[in-house]
Write a protein that binds this DNA or RNA. Structure first.
Lengths: 242, 242
DNA sequence: CGAGTACTTGAGTCCGTTCAATCCCAGTGG
DNA sequence: CCACTGGGATTGAACGGACTCAAGTACTCG
């Protein structure tokens, strides 16, 4: 029993641009099914040529690359509405893996239909490109963080980012969010060790910027945190949903 | 006097996929002209909503973001065949600037024609998306470098990357390439200070991996450098050219 | 020949790492 | 009911890679 695109619950959220009419029905024709995966399972694997392109319907995960010697870098966090596997669908092989950190549901689009989608609907094709450009921007932000921010600033940056993404995808309960990522994962996303990340989070707590109680993150001083994180508050958040 | 797309000199290069027929003539209709800029000039500016989308016809540059306090992070190096200004054409404003490090020639596509291109040619639209996905992959590689490689590995990584890009765009003279980037710029791309970058380059020289003489970089031990840089030699290089 | 820019090198400091040990808590099986 | 287990979070102490500040060299350009 899969969800009908015309009933897609994500469409309700403010971050996603509304469809102008009949477009959900169009997308429905491209959806081949749903993939349900458990916490810890891989949606796509580095090196593999994924046979599908996915849109995240629910759940969160991480997008990461590993080196031969085991070092891991988390490139980005995966939230509802994100495209997964575009590289594999377009180019040769995936340069990263995606792992679920909660149970996830993914809408499945077979790769051969992607080309069909480009031929049939130029506006949907435009949206795919738009999302690719958005991904590029998110990676750029992380690059600036890793390259030019201090450790404390980087921690503020991810926490701010995660908070925003939880809120905009409707996964926040009140003003605090239940993080599904461990400190080790946060550390792997900002290029620090878990130990040092822990110390820096402690510092943010002591300075009253955040609080963390039983896995929930609360931002106590949003302006101060954003200032530390060097995040532009004016950036538009709205985006298309495929 | 602008170059006719049907005569595009880049098309000759091995890295670029051949057009199947009549496609150059199609692209010609979208080209509104050429932009010539001098060394040090900005092609696009961070924060601006660029009125154009460009393809680099000749010359090299840097794509970078700056923070309020002046810190700068180079996101990527810009070479012939690269798309410039896609974010500005699709979304709201550019999150980065592009500056010429040699004289550059850019093919100009007005942003309103981008949408027209999507409507008219699904294969060209597909190529634009392909290039966006490629950019995403290059950024991921840099992210892994900044987050998980040591200083020495990072220096090896950029140098290897630059060498490859010079060679594949036909800008190499023999086995050595004339770098158009200063050590300070290389430092800004790998998240290190110029001073430390200098010391690490010295080390690579002492170990016999590279040599640098009057601005030219020669890779003396390609395998050793690639091993240090953690670069996958098997990756396909061919890509579309818009 | 002076000025500017890039590159090079030295010495001291600090941020982040490494290697541990400890704590906390949710399961789980006796 | 409680000891046992294991993963995550936390803290301590010592080390080291990268930074800072500073001086000096090499080269181009007016």
């Amino acid at each position: 029993m899969t969800i009908d695109c015309t009933q897609c619950p994500l469409r309700q959220l403010d971050v996603f641009s509304p469809f102008t009419g009949g477009e959900e029905a169009f997308m429905k024709a491209f959806k081949a099914g749903e993939l349900q995966i458990e916490t810890g399972a891989q949606a796509v694997l580095q090196g593999a040529r994924s046979p599908h392109l996915y849109t995240v319907l629910s759940g969160v995960g991480i997008r990461y690359a590993t080196l031969e010697d085991g070092r891991r870098q988390i490139l980005n966090f995966v939230f509802p509405g994100d495209l997964v596997g575009l590289q594999g669908a377009l180019m040769d092989a995936m340069s990263h893996s995606v792992e679920a950190k909660t149970a996830m549901t993914l809408c499945v689009f077979p790769r051969e239909r992607l080309w069909e989608l480009f031929k049939t609907s130029s506006s949907r094709a435009y949206d795919v490109t738009w999302l690719a450009a958005r991904e590029e921007r998110l990676l750029s932000d992380n690059l600036v963080s890793l390259g030019r921010l201090s450790g404390l600033e980087r921690v503020a940056h991810v926490l701010q980012l995660l908070h925003t993404r939880y809120v905009e995808t409707g996964l926040a309960e009140g003003d605090s969010v239940a993080l599904h990522f461990t400190q080790a994962e946060i550390a792997d996303s900002i290029g620090l060790t878990p130990v040092h990340t822990n110390r820096l989070m402690k510092k943010l707590r002591e300075e009253g910027l955040i609080s963390t109680r039983d896995g929930a993150l609360t931002v106590l001083a949003p302006e101060a945190l954003a200032a530390l994180a060097k995040i532009d508050p004016a950036r538009k958040r709205e985006r298309p949903l495929i």
